[in-house]
Every structure is written in C-alpha cells, then in structure tokens.
C-alpha cells in the first residue's frame, strides 16, 4: 500500500517536471514565432528598398541613417548592402523554420509522454482505490 502511494507520488513528481519542460518548450516556440514575424517584416521592407533603389538613377544621392547622422552612400554600395541584408534575413528565416520544427517535434513527444504518465497515475490510483 505504501509502496503504491509512493510510486504514485514519484509519478506525479515526474509529471510535474515534464509539464514544466513542456511549458518551457511552448514559450520557446512562441518566442521563435515572434522573431520569425519580425524577420519577415524586415524582409518585406528590404525588398521594397531594393526595388526603389533599382529604380533610382545612377547619379541619385543616397544616404544611410546611422545613429543621428545621415551618411552619404554610393548607390551601388547601398544596393549591394541591401542585397546582402536580404540574403542574411532569408538564411535566418530558414534557420528559424528548422528550429521551430524541431521544437514542435519535441513538444509533441513531451505531450505524449505526459499523456502516458497521466494514464499510469490514473490506473495506479484506481488500483489503489480497489485495494
């Protein structure tokens, strides 16, 4: 009898740990989604800039705002900078996608484990009640 109840206690502790892990995972996923959203917005903005830069004449003056000052930039330089930035952002987005997928897999397996634990606790409790 006492061994049974201690087993149940152990299981419950385990369950608690797992649920903590799960909620952590969920937080990570949510964070990831937010970062992802930010990057997508930036990607859209950069693409817009690139489009406008492409439409500019060769001799147009382009400035970049760095801190409080506007620094004059070469159009070609600005163009290549923006391209690089877009590349970086797309790579970052891919990476984020992979991590999100990974996290979601982990989350699912954790959920399964938790479900199993709950079932075990329940069956133990019912057998205890019978005894």
């Amino acid at each position: 009898m006492s061994s049974l109840s201690s087993a149940v206690r152990d299981l419950q502790r385990e369950l608690e740990n797992k649920t903590n892990d799960l909620s952590k995972l969920q937080k990570d996923i949510a964070k990831n989604h937010q970062v992802r959203k930010k990057y997508t917005v930036q990607l859209g903005e950069n693409e817009l800039v690139l489009k406008e830069l492409d439409l500019l004449n060769e001799d147009a003056n382009v400035y970049k705002l760095i801190g409080p000052v506007l620094v004059k930039q070469d159009l070609a330089e600005a163009n290549s900078n923006v391209r690089k930035r877009i590349e970086y952002i797309t790579a970052e987005l891919k990476r984020l996608d992979a991590t999100v997928q990974d996290l979601e897999e982990k989350q699912n397996s954790k959920k399964d484990a938790i479900l199993k634990l709950q079932q075990r606790i329940q069956s133990l409790q019912t057998s205890k009640a019978k005894a």
């Binding site: 903005e45 400035y63 970049k64």
Partner: peptide, 10 residues
C-alpha cells in the same frame, strides 16, 4: 526614406 535607414534625394 526608403526603409531600413536608407534615404534618397528625389
């Protein structure tokens, strides 16, 4: 302002 801190004279 074109975005991303880039300005152009127009």
């Amino acid at each position: 302002l074109l975005g991303e801190g880039y300005y152009a004279e127009r």
